[in-house]
């Protein structure tokens, strides 16, 4: 039983009945060969949002860390999620990834070289996409650990990233509240690593979406810990909440890992203390916490600029 089959069928339906008619109408049929990948990306994006909602909403409702009377500050996070997971950004991400990979690998082939892939390094992996998928996920998560950690090290970068940390009402929607420039840097980082490893184009969106689904759950406003062993296997809401704590905002923080806590354990940044910290960044402008989408984008740019020109 192929667990991806229902998604494939929905993506095929979307391609046949929505994407291709739109391409035909607007005169872009030359892209039809790639339209299945776009459709699949959108389907996985919607499925991931629904899955996050079904899993996280009950957790937040029945076991909240905090209860708020006013939920206004959370709505902008919903908007970020829709834009970043099922909107234009995933589409651009997939199109760019495919084109960059084809160009680089084609150029290598011109030189008589083949781009490295897990399957070429170890042919046993060929035809075992589930295993290679998880191996790619582990390596990509390591890459994400270092990208995230560096975004706290460089002040100008943290100027952008502080938008993510400024939320005082952190929920599972908050994973995607990022400055668009921070998203672009993250995309380039992730893409380059995926290209080096030779991630298959149609696995790429699924890897992005799986990792981010787990990251959504780790942002949930839920009083959930996975226990001594579980906390060391997978990033829990408690583990990641420590990273979003008011005392952990800025250059020195803890628990940078997105999916696996192993990297924090290996590189000495893990904090397994059993507390559920209050979240937010006291050094951030108020608009970064409670402003609208465009106001937050502008404030992120201002903070980055201030850090860049600071003596």
């Amino acid at each position: 039983m192929n667990i991806g089959a229902p998604f494939d069928l929905v993506a095929g339906w979307l391609q046949e009945h929505a994407v291709l008619p739109l391409l035909y109408y607007f005169g872009f049929m030359q892209w039809e060969e790639w339209s299945f990948g776009w459709s699949l990306f959108a389907v996985y994006g919607v499925a991931q949002v629904i899955a996050a909602l079904l899993i996280c909403w009950p957790l937040e409702h029945f076991w909240p860390v905090e209860r708020w009377k006013d939920h206004k500050a959370e709505w902008v996070d919903v908007l970020y999620t829709l834009i970043n997971r099922v909107g234009f950004l995933p589409l651009i991400t997939f199109v760019l990834f495919t084109q960059i990979q084809m160009s680089i690998n084609g150029w290598l082939a011109d030189q008589g070289l083949l781009a490295p892939t897990l399957e070429r390094l170890a042919p046993w992996f060929e035809g075992r996409p589930v295993i290679t998928f998880f191996l790619y996920a582990i390596v990509l998560d390591l890459g994400e650990y270092w990208r995230h950690r560096l975004s706290h090290v460089f002040n100008w970068w943290y100027g952008l990233h502080s938008l993510h940390h400024a939320q005082r009402q952190m929920t599972f929607w908050s994973d995607d509240r990022n400055h668009v420039l921070d998203e672009v840097i993250g995309f380039l980082w992730f893409t380059v690593l995926a290209l080096i490893m030779g991630v298959p184009p149609l696995q790429f969106p699924m890897l992005v979406l799986l990792l981010r689904l787990l990251e959504s759950m780790s942002h949930a406003n839920a009083r959930i810990s996975f226990g001594w062993l579980g906390e060391r296997l997978l990033v829990s809401p408690r583990f990641h909440r420590a990273h979003h704590g008011t005392t952990a905002a800025g250059r020195v923080s803890v628990n940078y890992g997105g999916v696996f806590p192993w990297w924090d354990m290996i590189f000495g940044t893990a904090d397994f203390s059993p507390t559920f910290a209050a979240t937010g960044d006291p050094s951030a402008e108020e608009v970064l916490a409670t402003g609208g989408y465009w106001a937050q984008q502008a404030a992120g740019l201002r903070r980055m600029w201030r850090e860049l020109v600071a003596p």
Binding site: M102, G106, A109
Partner: peptide
């Protein structure tokens, strides 16, 4: 195989893979 930049040469009866040839796209 376009993205792998290779031709996969098969036995037309058994479909056993005989060799791979590097060819862009």
């Amino acid at each position: 195989d376009t993205v792998a930049n290779e031709l996969v040469v098969l036995d037309p009866d058994t479909y056993d893979i005989r060799r791979h040839i590097t060819v862009p796209d």
